[in-house]
């Protein structure tokens, strides 16, 4: 570097000389800023990706857990639906097993010449008798219901008096036996 080429101390020279470092400074600063922003951006991306990854794996685990609990529920349902369990439940509510003897044959042509299967005569007689007994009992109950209250009260009093008299008699007898 020859001394001739060196800048002079005048103003213009000074301004020219000062302008170079400022430019460098700005450039460096800009680069530095871009670098820092870039670093921040990359770091943010990195940490957010890790964050998403963690959330993702949590959700995946949750799905797996839900699926396995779904399977467990299916298993529980199957256990509840097993014939042995159903039979127990049915017996609890008073259902009977279905067999051919429990089935009534449905005949779609009611007007056809085929006669319906007649019940054995013993069964018929039994049913009639049950009906008769049932109706007689129900009539008695009805009659009792129709009685006026006064009559019922009078009957009750009579019954109570009788009971008292019976008790007294029994007590007297007991006393006599004890004395003997």
């Amino acid at each position: 570097m020859s001394p001739k080429k060196l800048p002079n101390k005048n103003k213009t020279q000074r301004s020219e000389g000062n302008s170079i470092p400022w430019r460098y400074c700005f450039l460096t600063l800009a680069c530095g800023l871009i670098l820092v922003v870039g670093f921040f951006f990359a770091a943010r991306q990195h940490f957010s990706s890790i964050d998403f990854g963690i959330k993702n794996s949590k959700l995946r685990k949750q799905i797996e857990e839900l699926e396995s609990s779904k399977r467990r529920l299916i298993l529980a349902k199957e256990i509840a639906l097993s014939p042995a369990e159903i039979k127990k439940a049915a017996q609890k509510i008073g259902l009977r097993e279905m067999t051919a003897s429990n089935i009534e044959v449905y005949r779609p042509n009611a007007d056809s010449t085929e006669k319906p299967i007649e019940k054995p005569k013993v069964e018929k007689a039994v049913e009639e008798k049950v009906k008769q007994v049932g109706s007689a009992k129900s009539e008695e109950i009805k009659k009792e219901d129709q009685k006026p209250e006064k009559e019922i009260q009078a009957e009750r009093k009579l019954q109570e008096d009788k009971d008292k008299a019976n008790k007294e008699k029994k007590d007297k007898l007991k006393m006599q036996i004890a004395k003997k």
């Binding site: 089935i103 009534e104 044959v105 449905y106 085929e114």
Partner: peptide, 10 residues
Amino acid sequence: SSTGKGKKKT
């Protein structure tokens, strides 16, 4: 043969 037509009713 006569009962073959019928359907079962539970």
